[in-house]
């Protein structure tokens, strides 16, 4: 046996369980803004999943959604009975706004997933292999950046809905397909940093396959900024969906989303301002929840905070 020196135990170690994610968690859990934004997000997710839990049970068999639609009650101002008033159909506006969460969040979630998946795939390949592939992907992404967002959305939406009516997934794909270039840029640049680190070189020198290097060494070390970005992005996607619907190029008019509600309310702002105010508040609070969460994650993931 060799007689090398055994360094003393634990001299420079702090505690056993410190990994990147646990360190981040330690930072996060002490921040009230993290918990605040988490509660906001949970409330909205619950609202989207189980709107019935938020709305009083239906009074009759002809009104299963609990919206209490009575045409005679149209455009009532907020009252004890109808907290947020009623809309043009005479439906309870509190119930409407609550039901609107589902569509808005579905669009936000899937549009973000869509753009992050494409972005990580293309950005990862471009960053890792470089050369022509990188040049090609980057120029395409640049092309998308040059396109004004709304113009792009109109083009994609009209291309998708040549026949039939617009559906939720059309809007989701439209928003997602405009979001990926930003993810490509971000993820590519982190991959470029990580791939030149010595532990990646070390794996390469050992003869590790590209797949192993990308999956084991690059992805876990490069994913954090993209995670943060997409969380912040969720907030803005909710707003984009509302904008598109507001402009009349988003969701079909018979679906319930905050964007649609705003569209309809915009025409009657003088007489019934409550129709505009309540969905706006929900929209802003939900977006804020995701943006705040993203900011907190960014600070927790930033090693300079340690």
């Amino acid at each position: 046996m060799t007689n090398v020196i055994h360094p003393p135990e634990s001299s420079s170690t702090v505690d056993e369980s410190r990994t990147f994610w646990r360190d981040s968690w330690r930072i996060l859990r002490r921040r009230w803004l993290f918990w605040f934004s988490l509660i906001i997000i949970i409330v909205f997710i619950a609202m989207a999943a189980f709107p019935e839990a938020f709305v009083a049970p239906s009074p009759g068999p002809d009104d299963p959604s609990g919206k209490f639609c009575l045409l005679t009650n149209d455009r009532l101002a907020p009252s004890a009975e109808h907290w947020y008033g009623t809309d043009v159909q005479g439906c309870d506006y509190y119930a409407q706004v609550t039901h609107g969460a589902r569509v808005s969040l579905i669009v936000a979630l899937f549009a973000t997933l869509f753009s992050v998946t494409i972005g990580i795939l293309l950005g990862g390949l471009a960053g890792f292999y470089g050369g022509w592939l990188d040049a090609f992907v980057s120029r395409i992404a640049d092309g998308f950046f040059a396109l004004p967002y709304l113009v792009g959305a109109i083009i994609v939406l009209s291309a998708l809905t040549t026949q039939g009516s617009r559906q939720i997934w059309h809007v989701t794909v439209a928003i997602g397909s405009l979001g990926w270039p930003a993810v490509v840029r971000l993820y590519r640049s982190t991959v470029l940093q990580v791939k030149n680190l010595e532990y990646v070189q070390a794996a390469r020198a050992l003869g590790a396959s590209d797949g192993r290097i990308i999956y084991r060494h690059i992805l876990p070390n490069a994913i954090a900024p993209t995670l943060v970005y997409s969380t912040i992005g969720m907030g803005s996607v909710i707003a984009v969906e509302a904008t598109l619907s507001f402009l009349g190029i988003g969701l079909p008019i018979n679906s319930i989303s905050w964007g649609i509600m705003l569209t309809e309310a915009g025409n009657r702002i003088e007489n019934t301002p409550h129709l505009l105010i309540f969905p706006s508040i929900y929209l802003i609070v939900a977006s804020l929840g995701f943006v705040l969460m993203g900011e907190q994650l960014r600070e927790a993931f930033d090693p300079r905070q340690r």
Partner: peptide, 21 residues
């Protein structure tokens, strides 16, 4: 790939040469 078993490299920077994850 076969020869890589016989020839190994040790890097300079003990901080960046090990995957932190």
């Amino acid at each position: 790939r076969l020869v890589r078993r016989d020839i190994q490299i040790v890097f300079q920077d003990p901080f960046s040469s090990l995957n932190p994850r």
